[in-house]
């Protein structure tokens, strides 16, 4: 790796051995006021979102908005095609009536909501992106097996290379390393 450009400090990665340890650590990092940090665990840990002070996401509102849009599009499409742009009598039914339009409206509401939920999740998670500093660590691979990681990014306004390192070391993790890119 020595043939590459000098690496830049990108933050810290702390390793923990139990869910309880990372929960305690997350509470301290939360209370210290960090904003650009995350935890990485091999399985969902109950209460960790609270320990991290995570707030609810805007995702439900995105889904709601998309659902309402889908509903309006469904109704509008059927009204415009059947009752406005190209009126055509089908078995003596009225050109436009609510009961007949419900199935398509329902399906489009669901479709738009689902697309909103999927793309909204992708965007809110900060995707698409090609790389994240945590992947510079070899040990981080164990985040999908048996270790619990807490990462603090260098872009956090509170993150200073020396002071934060000290603070994180005091949290009692089993390993601390700098992330570099």
């Amino acid at each position: 790796m020595s043939d590459q450009a000098p690496k830049k400090f990108a933050g810290y990665l702390v390793e923990f051995e139990t869910p309880h340890d990372i929960m305690v650590a997350a509470t301290s990092v939360r209370d210290a006021g960090f904003t650009r940090w995350d935890t990485h665990t091999p399985f969902p840990v109950h209460g960790l979102d609270h320990a991290m002070g995570l707030r609810g996401t805007a995702l439900p509102w995105i889904v709601m908005l998309m659902g309402v849009t889908g509903c309006a599009v469904g109704l509008g499409l059927q009204w415009w095609t059947n009752a406005h742009n190209y009126q055509f009598v089908v078995s003596g039914k009225p050109f436009f009536s609510i009961p007949a339009t419900i199935p398509v409206t329902f399906e489009l509401t669901i479709l738009f909501s689902a697309i909103g939920a999927f793309l909204g999740m992708i965007l809110l998670n900060g995707f698409p992106r090609w790389h994240h500093p945590v992947f510079s660590s070899e040990r981080f691979r164990r985040a999908t097996q048996d270790r619990f990681f807490l990462s603090v990014e260098a872009e956090d306004p509170l993150c200073e290379e020396d002071k934060t390192g000290e603070f994180l070391r005091s949290l009692g993790g089993s390993h601390l390393e700098k992330m570099e890119v």
């Binding site: 305690v24 509470t27 650009r36 609270h50 320990a51 991290m52 609810g56 900060g126």
Partner: peptide, 21 residues
Amino acid sequence: MCRKTSEGPFDDREDTVSAPN
């Protein structure tokens, strides 16, 4: 990702750290 540390409307759980059992 940017995370706010203030208490939001969803933070209605007991602190699991302070009361583990």
